[in-house]
């Protein structure tokens, strides 16, 4: 099961925040095919948002083919990230942790690390495209 939250200060539309959270959970393997997403009622009761926001997020996910609604039952995850992909995540994450240790040892503070990562990430993406 996934626990939603909402960051009011992020500036990202609330429905998009929900979509991102489902996508991320899928990527990290927290959600797998056959898992049920919380019902709209459960979501709105817990995080106090307009039901239409949740409807919209679920529709978007459905549109992307990640989930499917079963009438009268709920919304279920259809897509899944294969175990292989999840397995490869483990060493990559391990590498990243080691890199973080090195960065700290080099005297970089949080902001610098984040800036460095983002900068590298952006320029790498630019090159890749």
């Amino acid at each position: 099961m996934i626990e939603f939250y909402l960051d009011a200060k992020s500036g990202v539309a609330p429905y998009l925040q929900l979509v991102h959270q489902v996508r991320r959970a899928l990527k990290l393997g927290a959600l797998r095919a056959g898992d049920q997403l919380p019902t709209v009622r459960e979501v709105v009761t817990r995080i106090a948002i307009n039901p239409n926001t949740v409807f919209k997020a679920y529709r978007e996910l459905e549109h992307e083919g990640l989930v499917a609604a079963r009438a009268g039952v709920g919304t279920f995850v259809t897509a899944t990230t294969s175990d292989d992909v999840i397995a490869t995540l483990v060493p990559i994450r391990h590498d990243l942790e080691q890199w973080l240790v090195r960065a700290r040892a080099a005297g970089l503070d949080e902001d610098s690390i984040e800036a460095l990562f983002r900068d590298t990430f952006r320029s790498e993406r630019y090159v890749a495209s």
Binding site: R41, V44, T45, A48, N50, P51
Partner: peptide, 10 residues
């Protein structure tokens, strides 16, 4: 507000 929204959903 959560209670209120759950009503709207229902």
């Amino acid at each position: 507000l959560g209670l209120l929204m759950s009503t709207v959903a229902g």
